[in-house]
Nucleic acid binder design. Structure first.
Length: 299
DNA sequence: TAATGAATAT
DNA sequence: CATATTCATT
């Protein structure tokens, strides 16, 4: 028994975290600013602090608001945003889209609750830009969600204080979680110390053809309200990086080619009533950068 | 040490 | 409320 395909599942774990395949960070994939904002660990290059350059992706492929001409085309120095402490940059908040969550659940399902730890999940998801902290935070919430489901079904009085009526899981608490099917074995401890192998779950199969993105910029921050009753989300997914080195391309804003994430400026305030998403508004006290990561284009 | 999980902060 | 960040254990 050396190379039997029969026990490939026995060693699938070793195949999971390939060497550099998983952690090469997408520095070449995403925009430089983004890479920096992401604090790549692979980059032992702390010094050389890049200037607080805030570039915005120009979405309008062919349409320009035209009209209204502005003298200063440079970004506006919005008070707080204008000055950056240089070091210690913070990345925008990660937005867990249904697809991203799908991968998350998928990874956890294949890993099993046992091994479902942030680090492993993160590696399995193979989503560039995703950090262990991101997964950890989401995992925490996900566990609460699972616990909640168990509690409501078991009748018991487990009553959590607050009288949260969790009778039917359709409330606004489920939001994202309701979008993805929860594996059955999640609800109860799978006592299977021996047969706990399902499938290697290809981390990142293969990127299909080139992604045809363009007007994806207007990704509407579906506030989780419009859950897809039966349709899919139309998100401009972007898959993990690929080793496709093509130098033929001229150096011309290739930003529209392969971007691992998109940054949105969400203006949100306590009383801000406008739900209109505008990425141009960098209000001093309100500019909230949101990063929308896209899972590999597979579902 | 580094990672995890829960608590806490934004 | 959804994430981020901090903190105590391991």
């Amino acid at each position: 028994m050396r190379e039997d395909d029969s026990n490939w599942f026995s060693r699938w774990e070793e195949q999971l975290p390939p060497p550099e395949e998983l952690m090469p960070l997408s520095q070449t994939l995403i925009t430089p600013d983004l890479a920096i904002a992401f604090d790549i660990r692979n980059n032992p290059n702390p010094p050389t602090i890049p200037p607080p350059q805030q570039q915005q992706q120009q979405p309008p492929p062919s349409s320009l608001p035209s009209s209204t001409d502005f003298a200063d085309s440079t970004e506006l120095t919005s008070g707080t945003a204008g000055e950056e402490p240089a070091r210690t940059l913070k990345r925008p908040r990660l937005v867990w889209t249904p697809q991203l969550h799908k991968r998350f659940v998928d990874a956890v399902a294949h890993l099993g609750i046992k091994n479902a730890v942030p680090k492993t999940i993160m590696q399995l998801m193979s989503v560039d830009g995703l950090t262990r902290e991101n997964v950890a935070s989401h995992l925490q919430k996900y566990r609460l969600y699972l616990k909640r489901m168990q509690g409501i079904s078991s009748g018991g009085g487990g009553g959590a204080s607050g009288g949260g009526s969790a009778s039917v899981n359709d409330a606004a608490t489920d939001h994202l979680f309701a979008s993805s099917p929860v594996p059955p074995h999640f609800l109860h401890p799978v006592a299977r110390p021996n047969s706990d192998h399902f499938m290697p779950f290809v981390p990142v199969p293969a990127i299909h053809h080139q992604q045809q993105m363009a007007a994806a910029q207007y990704h509407r921050p579906v506030g989780h309200f419009g859950s897809p009753p039966n349709g899919h989300f139309d998100n401009p997914f972007l898959s993990r990086q690929q080793h496709h080195q093509q130098q033929n391309q001229h150096q011309h804003q290739q930003q529209l080619h392969r971007i691992g994430a998109q940054v949105h400026h969400n203006t949100l305030g306590g009383g801000g009533g406008g739900y209109v998403e505008d990425m141009e508004s960098a209000n001093a006290s309100g500019g909230r950068k949101v990063l929308t990561l896209f899972p590999t284009g597979d579902d």
